[in-house]
Nucleic acid binder design. Structure first.
Lengths: 328, 328
DNA sequence: CCGTCCTCTGAAACGCGTTTCAGAACTGAA
DNA sequence: TTCAGTTCTGAAACGCGTTTCAGAGGACGG
């Protein structure tokens, strides 16, 4: 593999001049520029990005740490980040944390050693907040708001409004006995959706009914089973997210309930599967693409020393599909 | 950020000695070793991976290029690769090619410049085969077999057997009018599944019935609609993959067909959604985890100069779930 | 024609961990 | 006691693109 010195020799100039031609940083005499370009073409020279990054102390790598790439939500997020990154000539180093604080820590460490330009992370652990603060890198927390990391930027969607919209919609659809499959309260998404739900309940004088439920399919199955025995007269369910909505549907339909005739279901996230599923899920849309793009932009601004918003709460909306139905 | 020279100064030794202590490459006097370790602890020194990689000409990065991370199959594959890579202290640089040869090319180029240790790629283009051959990096093609790249290693599953199993199973389940949603013949998966299908058809003297269908959901919808009008008496469908099976189910159930009572469906891949879906999909299992792990292992062996198998065809199996049903 | 200023260019230093090479210090055999 | 053989260590070179700095050459006002 040709190096810049090989090219320089061939073109009869110094390595510095080759570098200047490649980067267009300084004017170079047309004649020499021509020679350099020809030499580059002849040797097929491609600069070694490691050498460049070593000097510049920046590798144009953005680290993405998610609990699990297989989870559709995270994986759509990763996709969004990748797209925006590629557009800006950044690369994505993808890390799975498995919700393991230890592995998260290792990954952050590794990214720092790789001189990553920033980290986009979905973490549950407030401890990680500390590590983040220490690692000297621009970090954006996505879909979470850490309690003890005043400095760290975050991007999430308006869960409070989302919670409100979900209940309101079920009420509009004629549901009277609504159960809220409540996501984890130690996550801002779980907490604020719940608060939104409470707000509407009290506004309508409706009694709260909820079952705690993690964000994964398996726990969705469990919660749905529990729901059927505990609240057999339920006619509306707010699932903690789309995966749980899908699990709930499976249990319900297995028990002979018809959706939406007997029970209506609404999810959160609007993952791709929410509309590939049969029936298509009514859900609260999180702007995943926007969240990913914004996270990348924040890191870039951070790098360039430009000002940026630390707290980013993106708007949500609701899409009515086949698991809910307005009367009349 | 402390450098190795800072540590050396603090410990009163040379940088070389610090390096030796860190890597354990050469014996170092216990006394000095102790001093070095203490200095490392005090400074919080972490070696700059870029500098290390620059010298070693290897960054312990494995590039993964897939057409689309959002596709469940690729994303489970990426997950598998990440896991095996992490176990071996490799990192994953994830690239989306969008089935765009140009972008694929750019990504390969970039990975070469980053001194990646290898590339794991899912590509459709035989042109890319040429680029791969030129890029000087260990490359493993997954889920594909390129026609013109005799040198490149590949890992795929036994599509031929898979095709046979799928038809055989439907026949065992009593289907008489089976339609094969045939994947693209320019991909080995499409071609060999089809050949397996043909083999069994001719064995049973059954007439071939197929409709061409890409591997994505949208084309699955289209093909399923076509299927209903073209072959209204169909009682068994082999979908080109699980996504298409899911699309097919949607169209069928929308038309009032019951699955599996009226029509049975079998998919390929066994993506996670195949069993989260309602009804759970009968499908031919591709060992995605194994494929990912094997691909990583091949790259490692390649790097270490160890011998490895160029052609890897992994066994498939069939899982019976709710979209097919044996009679009696 | 002279001094000043600007433009272009190359040598050398830089970033930083690793490895080579030669010398120092010590062990052990003769 | 001496020579050979080990073991440990540091200086310097390496990998390679970028940047700094100073010098060379030319332009231009006076």
């Amino acid at each position: 593999m040709a190096s810049i010195r090989d090219v320089a020799k061939l073109a009869g100039v110094s390595p510095a001049t080759v570098s200047r031609v490649m980067n267009g940083t300084v004017n170079v005499d047309d004649d020499k520029k021509e020679k350099v370009l020809r030499a580059i073409r002849e040797t097929g020279f491609r600069p070694n990005e490691l050498a460049r990054a070593l000097y510049k102390k920046s590798s144009r790598i953005i680290g993405v740490i998610v609990p699990n790439i297989e989870n559709p939500f995270f994986n759509e997020l990763a996709r969004a980040v990748e797209e925006e990154a590629y557009r800006n000539r950044y690369k994505i180093l993808l890390c799975n944390s498995n919700d393991n604080t230890e592995k998260e820590f290792m990954n952050i460490q590794m990214l720092a050693q790789m001189k990553a330009d920033g980290i986009i992370i979905v973490t549950n652990s407030d401890n990680t907040g500390q590590v983040i603060a220490d690692c000297q890198l621009p970090v954006v927390v996505v879909d979470r708001r850490l309690t003890n990391s005043g400095q760290t930027a975050y991007v999430e969607s308006d869960h409070y409004k989302g919670g409100q919209m979900a209940v309101s919609h079920l009420i509009e659809c004629g549901c009277r006995n609504i159960v809220f499959l409540r996501g984890p309260l130690w996550l801002s998404s779980g907490l604020w959706r719940y608060r939104g739900y409470q707000e509407i309940c009290s506004k309508y004088g409706m009694q709260e009914r909820w079952i705690d439920c993690q964000y994964d399919y398996e726990d969705g199955l469990r919660a749905a089973r529990e729901l059927i025995t505990q609240y057999p007269d339920t006619d509306g369910i707010i699932a903690s997210n789309d995966m749980v909505a899908i699990a709930t549907y499976k249990i319900l339909s297995g028990q002979g309930y018809r959706v939406p005739e007997d029970v209506q279901i609404i999810g959160f996230d609007n993952i791709r599967f929410s509309w590939l599923f049969t029936p298509e899920l009514t859900t609260v849309i999180q702007p995943i693409m926007d969240m990913g793009a914004l996270a990348v932009q924040i890191i870039m601004k951070h790098r360039q020393g430009l000002p940026f918003q630390k707290e980013n709460i993106l708007d949500v909306s609701l899409v009515e599909r086949q698991t809910t139905k307005r009367k009349g």
